[in-house]
């Protein structure tokens, strides 16, 4: 969550609760919404690393609130992050390990493993369908995230089929 928080602070200084709201608004239900505690812990670490600073703002009748802003080092870190290419997902699939190894030990047969995994993926796809249906159509960011997850799942299923053709 460090870099998304830096990105939000690059727009304008904010306090923790505002950052939580901004994350929720931007990503909608498609992204796990962090609790406020996680946000403060992360901000604390960013502050310790010199990437953000906090100023106390007095409020009448209430405790001071801390407003965070980006430091020059923070901006630099953010720019580096944005500039560098990101790793794509890889197959580091625990299921594949089971598939390859299980029959060697006599624990399970491959056909059964593949069939169960297929149903599991389809169950996950059903969740994504429901998530998409429950997500505000105007939140394009959230919908794109869900669509991306669906495409990955489709690829996993296609690959499962290849495994079944070759190994089962």
């Amino acid at each position: 969550m460090r870099l998304p928080l830096l990105a939000l602070l690059a727009k304008e200084p904010a306090h923790g609760y505002e950052l939580k709201q901004a994350l929720e608004q931007t990503f909608g239900g498609a992204y796990p919404s962090p609790n406020i505690g996680q946000i403060y812990v992360t901000l604390g670490r960013l502050e310790k690393d010199g990437l953000v600073r906090a100023v106390d703002v007095e409020q009448s009748n209430r405790p001071n609130k801390k407003v965070y802003y980006l430091t020059a080092a923070g901006r630099e870190r953010l720019e580096t992050w944005v500039d560098e290419p990101s790793e794509g997902p890889r197959v580091r699939d625990e299921f594949f390990m089971k598939l390859v190894l299980a029959p060697l030990t006599g624990v399970a047969d491959r056909m059964a493993l593949i069939n169960r995994q297929r149903r599991h993926y389809l169950g996950q796809m059903r969740e994504l369908n429901e998530l998409a249906a429950a997500t505000d159509p105007a939140n394009r960011v959230a919908h794109l995230l869900v669509e991306g997850a669906m495409m990955h799942l489709q690829a996993d299923l296609d690959w499962l089929q290849r495994c079944q053709e070759e190994m089962a």
């Binding site: 909608g28 239900g29 498609a30 992204y31 796990p32 919404s33 069939n115 149903r119 599991h120 389809l122 169950g123 996950q124 059903r126 969740e127 994504l128 429901e130 998530l131 429950a134 997500t135 995230l145 869900v146 991306g148 997850a149």
Partner: peptide, 18 residues
């Protein structure tokens, strides 16, 4: 066989699905 139905009906969105 049956396709499993989502077990949890996630409140804050099925966020962690992604």
């Amino acid at each position: 066989g049956a396709i499993p139905r989502p077990v949890r009906r996630p409140r804050g969105g099925a966020g962690d699905v992604v």
